[in-house]
Simulated assay, not measured.
Amino acid sequence: MNILIVGANEITAELAKKLAQKGHSVILVGRDASICEEVAATSDVLVVTGDYTDLDFLERQGIEFKRMDVVVIATGSDEVNLMLSVIAKNLGADRVITLVNNEKIERILMRLGIECLGFSKTIAALLEARVEGRRTVTELLEAMGSDYRLVALQIEEDDTSVGKRLSELPLPSMSRILAVFDGEKLVLPDQDITIKPGSVIIALVHKDHVKQFRETFK
Rank of each mutant, 00 (worst) to 15 (best):
M1V: 07
M1L: 10
I3C: 14
I3G: 12
L4A: 05
G7E: 14
G7D: 14
N9K: 00
E10N: 15
I11C: 09
T12A: 15
E14N: 14
L15Q: 03
L15V: 15
K17V: 14
A20Q: 06
G23W: 01
G23D: 02
H24V: 05
S25R: 11
G30W: 13
R31L: 14
I35G: 01
I35K: 07
C36V: 01
E38C: 03
V39I: 08
A40E: 06
T42F: 10
L46S: 13
V48P: 00
T49L: 11
T49F: 12
T49G: 10
D54F: 02
D56S: 07
E59N: 06
R60Y: 07
Q61F: 05
E64A: 09
F65H: 00
K66C: 03
D69F: 04
D69P: 00
V70F: 03
V70L: 04
V72I: 01
I73D: 00
T75D: 06
T75K: 01
V80E: 05
L82E: 00
S85E: 05
S85Y: 06
V86F: 06
I87L: 09
A88N: 05
N90L: 09
N90P: 01
G92L: 00
R95K: 02
R95E: 06
V96R: 10
V96M: 11
I97L: 13
L99R: 06
V100K: 05
K104P: 09
I108F: 14
I108Y: 08
R111S: 09
L112G: 00
G113I: 04
I114Q: 13
F119I: 11
S120K: 07
K121T: 11
A125N: 12
A125Y: 15
L126I: 06
L127D: 01
E128Y: 15
E128C: 10
E128T: 04
A129L: 13
R130I: 11
R130W: 06
V131P: 00
V131L: 10
E132Y: 09
E132R: 12
G133A: 14
R134L: 13
R134H: 11
R134V: 14
E139Q: 12
E139N: 09
E139L: 12
L141D: 04
E142M: 13
M144G: 08
M144Y: 05
G145L: 08
D147F: 13
Y148T: 05
R149W: 09
R149C: 15
R149Y: 14
V151T: 02
A152V: 08
D158S: 07
T160L: 15
R165W: 05
R165Q: 12
S167G: 02
E168Y: 04
L169Q: 03
P170H: 08
P172G: 07
P172W: 10
S173R: 12
R176I: 11
I177Y: 04
L178Q: 03
A179Y: 11
A179C: 11
A179D: 08
F181I: 02
D182H: 01
G183H: 03
E184S: 09
L186R: 15
D190K: 10
D192W: 12
T194D: 02
T194K: 15
I195P: 01
I195A: 02
V200E: 10
V200G: 06
V200D: 03
I201R: 03
A203Y: 06
A203T: 02
L204P: 02
V205N: 07
K207M: 11
K207C: 07
D208K: 10
V210W: 14
K211H: 10
K211C: 07
E215M: 14
E215Q: 11
T216V: 13
T216R: 08
T216I: 11
F217P: 02
